[in-house]
Design a binder for these strands. Structure first.
Lengths: 163, 163
DNA sequence: TATTGTTATACTCTATAACTATA
DNA sequence: TATAGTTATAGAGTATAACAATA
């Protein structure tokens, strides 16, 4: 089977750190690692702040994009958000069943569905934006400071664009 | 296939009518959104750079942590990495089957498995570290600049810690 | 023939309950 | 009784193929 007689450099006896906190070591210098953990924290906080409206980050991004770009079809919105078309269907089903948006067959190309926010969708988006600004982003700015928060936004955009 | 895939074509601005690029709007000010997209890019690049060794970010983090903290059990390592114990099992199975680490029953508490890198595990980790430094982090530093890269690390750690 | 929305499907991650063997 | 490792399982998120309607 597998090996059983190597690893003689560090004996299983003589633990000098029994029960103590582990050394992260080079892990804390690994940007991907910190980035992932920070991203999880930020999404957790987003969900907490958005709990009254029951919107996920992905759902919020769809409403935001639709408000700024009315009359687009599913493929255009999904592509812009990096969501694959098949996976976009159930996401839209959920929002449409909550009457936040509508799918309408395009008169010019009856294959495509034109997406538009409903009045309820616009109202919900307005409340959602307020929650994000006053609870979520406000807390981030409080932790980082306004200058670093802005710098961070720039760096994230740069990585997403140029990396 | 060239090195440049057309994941997202950026059309010239000013095309707000039919067929033009969509307006991201407030989406670009949403830190969680940029953070997520940046994190995906960084992990993609990590996998590309690490392709010769076939290590995922999670696997690399386990090797790194084990090297710095030999003789710990599965629960301690998993908790430190934010991995749930049940999900840690198959991750370890994969690394152990590649002879990169060993599980040994602890003599003091026969319930727990003491984890240690094998010689092959240490050698692989050394090669992995070199790939990360010379290919992955080097590219990040090239895009961001050394000062911003360092600042970014600090901010990510701060969010992961205080947020 | 090509494209839009869709279904089906599969694979990875993540999360919870419950089992076993030890303590 | 409680804990460490494990199994089973379920749910998200993500990926590809293929089909019907339409172009």
């Amino acid at each position: 089977m597998t090996s059983q007689d190597q690893a003689k450099q560090v004996a299983p006896v003589g633990f000098d750190e029994e029960g103590g906190a582990l050394q992260l070591g080079e892990l804390s210098e690994l940007l991907g690692y910190s980035l992932k953990r920070a991203q999880l924290k930020v999404f957790e906080d987003f969900l907490r702040c958005m709990a009254p409206l029951q919107l996920t980050p992905a759902q919020f991004s769809v409403l935001l994009l639709l408000d700024k770009n009315p009359g687009r079809n599913q493929t255009e919105i999904a592509n812009t958000l990096g969501i694959l078309r098949p996976n976009f269907v159930s996401l839209l089903d959920a929002l449409e069943s909550r009457d936040l948006l509508t799918r309408m067959r395009s008169p010019s190309d009856r294959r495509s569905h034109v997406l538009m926010l409903t009045d309820k969708g616009r109202a919900t988006l307005a409340r959602a934006k307020k929650l994000v600004a006053t609870r979520h982003e406000a807390r981030l700015i409080e932790v980082l400071g306004p200058a670093e928060h802005k710098a961070l936004l720039g760096m994230m955009a740069k990585i997403a664009r140029e990396f």
